[in-house]
Design a protein around this nucleic acid. Structure first.
Lengths: 237, 237
DNA sequence: CGAACCCTTGACAGAAATCAACTAAGGTGG
DNA sequence: CCACCTTAGTTGATTTCTGTCAAGGGTTCG
């Protein structure tokens, strides 16, 4: 891996507190690679060869079953995937595909497990990462099971706003069909839901989002950290 | 904690490989308590005081939002909950309630984190447990987003059969309204779905399940380890 | 310029939630 | 022992929501 990459990665929460020897062992056989958009990085069912860290771009985790496909997670930098599979040496449950051009670190899973055993600080960082992945998936499942599609959409918009420091105008970061899949609906349905939310303080022109009435939108979404996650930058409370 | 409990617990995968000192530190301030049915053990949003291990009985994890409620997980012995919250010192995302009389070990979260730092074998066991919880929730989310309610029900029946060594006749382990909630449908809908599956080789009389035509049922469910989990007892592959 | 592709819209069909009525079983208390 | 109440489950009627199908507009890209 190049020196510039190494310095950049060393600052990530996953690697910040670990020993120099561990860091070197982890990065010795690792790759930091750039991928074009729409490239499938891993397939579901494959054995867990690499632990992945998205450092730039946008990656989606996709579930497939019986000819159907669904976007389960959208990963922005800096995020990881395939950690649980690597730790348990089990097959990937989801495929991963770049949405836009992305840079990804690939760490052989055997090195990951060796570093876990050798470095307590790294073990703790891994456990935190696993716990956060779990909690993210619990939140997504709660979103799916407790909210209607309209409510999920309103919640998504407010989360995106929060990610941008509470901005009331921003661009949708995803293609609508991808967003629809992530929110558990069809593109047609998303289209209609977006129009319907105009009565609740949301205006959308193509990809340009304007929150006209935040309170009204939140009366639909009832945003809560127990589903929508903590405020960006804040600890998970 | 009583000696009988200690011996019993020592054999669990979580504690099997850890040092004697760690085990003693963990169990010194732990409780092994019996709870009646329908008791709420924890509420969502509470701070993570205890790590929990279900040793007997049946416990459900429940999500609440805006007056709605949904069963997210059903835990049979031996299973754990609140691990992710304890490791990250974050609030519980789900409430827990006993379904039937249950015995639960409660370990103070500070002790859990101390043991993680002190004992590498325990850290590894915790990481495996976290990874398995994550993968379980991914599977549940895939179940929800990729399958219809009828397909989920068929899958559930076949999983329950597999848990019983492939038995074709067994008793439903849950009240139907609880099962309906877990499967993401209403009780009325579950009733109808059960009748509809009679054409697909499933017969249900009250709580008594008979799989008349396993192949037909699997043509509906398309059981796969990537959603339904590994065969009981087998590693996750 | 044509070919994809994304998005939107409308019409329709199917699935699921809701509302309501009814049965059956279990528990309580007179 | 029986009347009464509560609760789980079923069934039917209805409405609401969502998916599907089809068509058309707009954009991008070879």
């Amino acid at each position: 891996m190049r020196d510039a990459s190494l310095a950049e990665i060393r600052e990530l929460a996953l690697f910040r507190d670990i020993g120099e020897a561990t860091f070197e062992a982890l990065t010795r056989s690792a790759y930091h690679q750039t991928f074009p958009p729409q490239v499938t990085l891993i397939h579901q069912g494959q054995s867990a060869d690499f632990f992945h860290v998205v450092t730039d771009g946008l990656v989606e985790l996709v579930g497939n079953w019986n000819g159907r496909e669904n976007t389960m997670v959208v990963l922005r930098p800096v995020s990881t995937f395939t950690l649980a599979a690597c730790m348990t040496d089990a097959p990937y449950l989801m495929a991963a595909r770049t949405i836009e051009q992305s840079r990804v670190i690939l760490i052989p899973s055997s090195d990951l497990r060796a570093a876990f055993a050798a470095d307590t600080a790294f073990a703790l960082a891994i456990a935190h990462e696993l716990a956060n992945c779990y909690r993210g998936m619990v939140r997504h499942a709660k979103d799916m099971k407790l909210r209607t599609s309209r409510e999920r959409l309103a919640g998504y918009i407010l989360r995106q706003s929060a990610l941008r420091g509470g901005a009331s105008r921003f661009e949708l970061p995803l293609e609508k069909r991808l967003l629809a899949s992530f929110l558990g609906m069809t593109p047609e349905n998303l289209s209609r839901a977006l129009r319907a939310l105009r009565d609740d303080g949301l205006a959308i022109d193509a990809t340009h989002v304007t929150i006209a009435d935040r309170a009204a939108l939140d009366r639909v979404a009832h945003v809560t950290p127990l589903i929508d996650g903590p405020e960006p930058g804040a600890p998970d409370r």
